[in-house]
Design a protein around this nucleic acid. Sequence first.
RNA 1: GUGGGUGUAGCUCAGUAGGUAGAGCACCUGGUUGUGGCCCAGGCGGCCGCGCGUUCAAGUCGCGUCAUCCACCCCA
Length: 418
Amino acid sequence: MNAIQSGKGFVDLFPPQSDIFTAIEQRARTVFARFACKELRTPIIEFTELFVRGIGDDTDVVQKEMYTFLDRKNRSMTLRPEATAGVLRACIQHKLFHPDAVSKFFTIGPMFRYERPQKGRQRQFHQINVEVLGSPSYLADVDVLFMLHAFLSEIGLSRLVFELNNLGCPQCRPAFRRTLDDYFNQLPQTSFCADCQRRIRTNPLRVLDCKVPACREITRDAPSIADHVCSLCKLHFDQVLALLDESGLETRLNPFLVRGLDYYQGTTFEVVSTDIGAQSSVAGGGRYDGLVRLLGGPDIPGIGFACGMERLAMLVPGNQDPALDAFLAVKNEQSLSKAVILAHTLRTSGFCIELPFEYRSIKSQLRTANKLNARTCIILDDEPGIYPAILCKNMVTGEQTHCPEDQLSQYLLTTSRP
RNA sequence: GUGGGUGUAGCUCAGUAGGUAGAGCACCUGGUUGUGGCCCAGGCGGCCGCGCGUUCAAGUCGCGUCAUCCACCCCA
């Protein structure tokens, strides 16, 4: 029989990597709680239509990256490629919007995109998502950025760059798009790199982001989006920038910051790192004021972000295995069953205990205790005539003392805990 | 979807002009140490990704295939 492997781009998480993920999730929950942001858990499978409508029919995600299949009743279902659409669907379906209040939700879980794997990119990956619904105010933009910043700081990441851009609204963006088209089309096609000749048609904003020197030369004088947004958009964004500046949160304007999901507008942002390869963005998000309505809900504005857990995990330092309170060793095979019961008792009292299931030499058991970083080794010796039968060895100092069974908890508390 | 790199013990990798395989770490056992950590000795463990071809003979050459990594694209 040949063994079955996991699918391409689907990875198994082992310790200590899995511990890092758990730690990141815990931090997220505590930080978001301070912002009165509540956790939401939505299905990972939704009707395909939800994503087509939400993300945009002609985006790369919808066009070529979705895990879509027919269920047993021939309905088109899709493994979620992002979280926002599902969260909004849930809010609309259950009428979670309060007319005059702001709702804040976060979700943590797996997302799926059919892409070629590379560093920082898998087919199943995990995101922490925040959605703030109900306020058009620039204060919401700033507060969301604060939330993201607080979370990233909490997990120990400080050397990150916050990039901001203003994408404009449905009123002013088309005009800029036309201006940009006109600018590019007046230039000879051959002056662009091969990729950009294609981008001009598919996604002109991306041309501005091209790294090829020749293209950079051209785009230096290209129209900037900042000069083409309407006065309302400009005011909103300026207020965001002013408040961020006042708060001391450092940001960098990136007029070339483009997001690949259609629903973004107005304030958009990305957090990038130079330490994790080509897929450098660890978090991204922005405002999506028309989206709730587009999905069949009331006309409610929203703003949110997503963090890629795998990319965060590459940046946070791994922490050590938590030490064992005690390893339970036995001097003869007969004591093994007594050891299991004693271990259970001690664990019930809250201690972390490990013990062998097969008998081995005491030397071997102590080696294991040492390897597991046990603070204490409790040695059971039930040999008739020997009393007392329990020995506690401090694995740091090497000291060894007899200890009556009913005083073990006390011993572990006073001696073993740092 | 398009490039390029890599596939030899659980892990990281060596492997010389083609002659059926090695190291370090890990694991197990033993010695020394009051019973662990250091050190020493031994042991377990390899259809050399898979298939076909060239050859008396292939881990080593050729073709194909699969997997994986990195990059493009795109995004978290």
